[in-house]
Write a protein that binds this DNA or RNA. Sequence first.
DNA 1: GTAAAAGTTGGAGTCGACTCCAAGTCAAGG
DNA 2: CCTTGACTTGGAGTCGACTCCAACTTTTAC
Lengths: 155, 155
Amino acid sequence: MKTELAYTIKQTADQTGVSEDTIRYYEKIALLPRAERRDNGHRVYREEDLRTIRLLSCLKKTGMPLEEMRPFLAVSVDADPADHPELVAHLKSHRENIVSQIASLQQVVDFIDMKLALGRYRGECDGDEREGAKKKPVSPMEMSHFSATSKTGKS
Amino acid sequence: MKTELAYTIKQTADQTGVSEDTIRYYEKIALLPRAERRDNGHRVYREEDLRTIRLLSCLKKTGMPLEEMRPFLAVSVDADPADHPELVAHLKSHRENIVSQIASLQQVVDFIDMKLALGRYRGECDGDEREGAKKKPVSPMEMSHFSATSKTGKS
DNA sequence: GTAAAAGTTGGAGTCGACTCCAAGTCAAGG
DNA sequence: CCTTGACTTGGAGTCGACTCCAACTTTTAC
């Protein structure tokens, strides 16, 4: 069962675009599970692991902080999320965040397009605009994005 | 012309969701132009400024670093971007980044949906999959996102 | 007149996410 | 046997983006 094609950390880094240091860092903070080791202590990665790392990389590109990625990994690792209802709720919530982030991004694209197209028009970014109805913001969603409250006060 | 409805920094913070400190910080690093002052030195903001700040906030939500926002503001401030061709190129490039980021996000949504729906299937995040053809990844784009190379080496 | 509320400044501190480094291990090649 | 290269570890350093603070002024409220 061990002949399942394995990668060194360097190969893994190359294939995922995530640096060796970063992969080790993710393991250090337990964002990734402790990688299997060879006899000499070297880490071994499989396809499964590469997929997980690519998922992290993908989430990171969306601006998600590492801590918020943990629930995704919990789902990624074991199989059926229906076993963990609060995890399901978490994911649903994240899904909403991402959907509105997509809308947010689409508005940036619109903004750029308008600027590029006619170099005059002034486009907005969040939902409440009192201008005309010239824009069609992809879909009518609330635009609350990630944690709308800016207070990140320490408890 | 000064009766154009003005806001204090607090009002601006409340209306944009960006904290006072952060607004001052953005001014400090010249991401925002130096705000107009009253006789007593207090900052004054107009609708125009709120829009700019909302744009920044919006871009930030997409994970864009502050330095990369500057070209957007250059466009935001003066009118016609056609005057500055390299700026236009910059914007176009950013547009591509954002479009692929949207696709990236959509795949995360797909990932969640799959997990939530059948709790079994294993979805990927980047383009190369050698699985079946069960996924429809929104649109066929290259998925290179923001600066694909992980080497951020100092010159 | 005094005190509270809201603003100003410069600078220090924090936090997340790396990134780099030194010291050490191990496997293969000349 | 010695060096080279790919790896290990723990820990230090860096950088971006705030966030907080102290000292101060000004305006309003009683």
